[in-house]
């Protein structure tokens, strides 16, 4: 009896899995960033460093959020990197060769994402095919189509409206730093970052407060019980894939806005980075556990460690891959050990 009371009173055991993993991620991110400021100084003391990380990872944040939703509902989607490349190439061809409009190009991006979501969602949810195989084929298809549309990588140069949009910088009030000459340089972010942060907030609210959002957790946690609760499991799965691919489409446009070019090798391995960020952010592939805010911090942690490694002088290409993998490994082990401890504590 007294044992039971102890467990109830223990903060560690009272927290839900989702919140516990989220807190681990956020704490580690801040420790890492503060550590970088103290030990490396330099770029990390300037606020622009953080904003640069955001600028170059806005697309990853968006796709990783979609990935988290699919993973929470118990699936996986490895086609997002391919979709991003396909969107960039299609938009680049449309804008540069056909002199298209910004709205038109955005609609193309959205349409590709929606089409992908509908097809993959139908195959996974209603035909009961493994999501891994479906999205694997989706990835192959997207990469191949990108090459079929245009073989050679190229920059968009002939579309002034797009170039203006690409150059748009939003200054952050109250943040900035003095450069070597003592001139005040305000910190800036790109449009993509705003899009990404707005999407993160919307998705966070959807997952926390709407019926659809809660049913993602229910389906991912236990399909049978979700069915018993009267949740339409197939439709929920379908929507998870629809949202993920649509976000990949939007993420593709943000990526395109950042790089301003089309290439078949764009966003190579982005799906793996998205999965890694989701895991670091506390989403579990077994489903039912995860948080969008955690995913945001997952992306930030991932790119912060990359920056730390490259500014520590280990700038050979292979160190990045090894550090990301090491980080992923550590987080997976933490998750595994923590979850086992909790299970044991709850049982006794």
């Amino acid at each position: 009896m007294s044992k039971k009371k102890l467990i109830k009173g223990n903060l560690f055991n009272r927290m839900s899995d989702t919140n516990l993993l989220l807190i681990i991620t956020v704490v580690i991110f801040f420790l890492m960033y503060i550590g970088a400021i103290i030990f490396q100084g330099g770029g990390f003391t300037k606020p622009q460093m953080l904003f640069n990380i955001l600028n170059s990872n806005a697309a990853l944040i968006i796709t990783a959020c979609g990935m988290s939703i699919v993973m929470i509902s118990g699936g996986i989607d490895i086609s997002v990197g391919g979709v991003v490349a396909l969107v960039s190439m299609s938009c680049a061809v449309y804008l540069d060769f056909h002199n298209g409009s910004i709205i038109g190009s955005f609609l193309i991006a959205l349409a590709i994402g929606l089409a992908y979501g509908i097809v993959q969602g139908l195959l996974v949810a209603y035909l009961d095919i493994q999501p891994f195989i479906v999205s694997l084929a989706g990835m192959f298809f997207a990469r191949g189509m990108t090459t079929i549309i245009n073989t050679k990588p190229f920059n968009v140069e002939n579309n002034q409206a797009f170039l203006n949009l690409k150059q748009t910088r939003i200054t952050v009030p109250g943040m900035g730093s003095y450069n070597r000459k003592g001139i005040y340089v305000p910190a800036y972010i790109e449009i993509g970052v705003v899009v990404a942060l707005v999407l993160v907030i919307i998705l966070f609210l959807v997952l926390r407060y709407t019926k659809l959002g809660r049913s993602f957790y229910a389906v991912g946690g236990n399909k049978q019980s979700a069915l018993m609760l009267g949740i339409n499991v197939k439709r929920t799965k379908f929507f998870s894939h629809l949202i993920c691919s649509t976000l990949a489409g939007i993420g593709g446009y943000v990526y395109f806005l950042h790089v301003g070019s089309g290439s078949a090798s764009h966003a190579m391995g982005m799906e793996m980075n998205a999965i890694a960020s989701s895991i670091i952010g506390g989403t579990m592939l077994s489903g039912g556990v995860g948080n969008i805010i955690g995913t945001l911090f997952g992306v930030l942690s991932l790119s912060t460690i990359q920056n730390i490694v490259s500014s520590a002088g280990l700038d050979q290409a292979w160190w990045t891959g090894i550090t990301i993998a090491a980080m992923l490994c550590i987080f997976l082990l933490i998750q595994s050990v923590v979850m086992r401890q909790r299970k044991r504590a709850l049982k006794s």
Binding site: I76, A276, L285, A317, I324, S336
Partner: peptide, 26 residues
Amino acid sequence: FKIQPMIATLILFTAGRSIAAWINNN
């Protein structure tokens, strides 16, 4: 550690080619 196989092998998937390059100093 009871990690799902796809995620567990994601670690070597990310690092493998880097490790290979590192073995022979690129």
